[in-house]
Design a protein around this nucleic acid. Sequence first.
DNA 1: CTGCATGCAAAATATTTGCAACAGC
DNA 2: GCTGTTGCAAATATTTTGCATGCAG
Lengths: 148, 148
Amino acid sequence: VSDSSLAAVLRSRGLRLTAQRQLVLEAVYELGHATPDQVHAKVSATAAGVNITTVYRTLELLEELGLVTHAHLSHGAPTFHAVGADQHVHLVCRSCGGVSEVSPGVLSQLSATLDMEHGFLVDIGHVALFGVCARCRKAAGCEGDGND
Amino acid sequence: VSDSSLAAVLRSRGLRLTAQRQLVLEAVYELGHATPDQVHAKVSATAAGVNITTVYRTLELLEELGLVTHAHLSHGAPTFHAVGADQHVHLVCRSCGGVSEVSPGVLSQLSATLDMEHGFLVDIGHVALFGVCARCRKAAGCEGDGND
DNA sequence: CTGCATGCAAAATATTTGCAACAGC
DNA sequence: GCTGTTGCAAATATTTTGCATGCAG
């Protein structure tokens, strides 16, 4: 899925298809969502020697090309995920630090409201909601791991 | 509003009331939402010489005390805002970079759904939704400022 | 006085940029 | 071969930590 469209999009802009770009995009697809650092690690597992700088630059490029996006899940770590892969809303637990994904359908009501009342078009794939997950709510005294 | 409760909360924990802590909390109240850097600037305007390190430590402390929280609005900049001040949901425009605030009421439907279907308790004050604001949607060709 | 807080500087992290070498087309 | 890309290293930016001094209680 990724390779062919990547080549096409790049060519349409006069840009070049390189091994690094294929690897980064592939890594984003496989990881689901990951920080630049995690993407770098994944890429390095296959092809050592790919520089972290290139990962940053490539992620930026891929985002510009509309192939990936990023959201701000925990602390200062932007996490990237592929566009076209199943869109999902991230639920980040502030207690245990876990990230779960739910269908963007839960946002349909909200996005309609924001559109009507504020003219704001929500980017569904970019949404991260913070709170406390079911597991941590049960474990009332749960101290969590202090994530975020 | 801030000062008295700050003193009380600090004392209840055996911590000390200092000028810096008052200034930082005050700055957060006045700024609405701001990054550590912005808080530092605001504080410095009143009392020069307050170290950025202290701002970080104080924001962390105030958050622990439940007096402020932070959300991840744009890029890697956590923005802090006072708890107790009117809670609001942040709408961040990816085109013009503007941040607007809407009533948390728009989330009532959503939070109810997430609670029922996933047992997830959303932290309303921590929510930031990314998308495109009304103004930028109208200005179709709007190139934006590339924020985030 | 006693110990928590602060300031300063340096370390640890995260991200960006300049430039020469390299590779896709 | 021309030009976009990459790697490396250094510059920036951001946040954290160690330690001696200072001040609230």
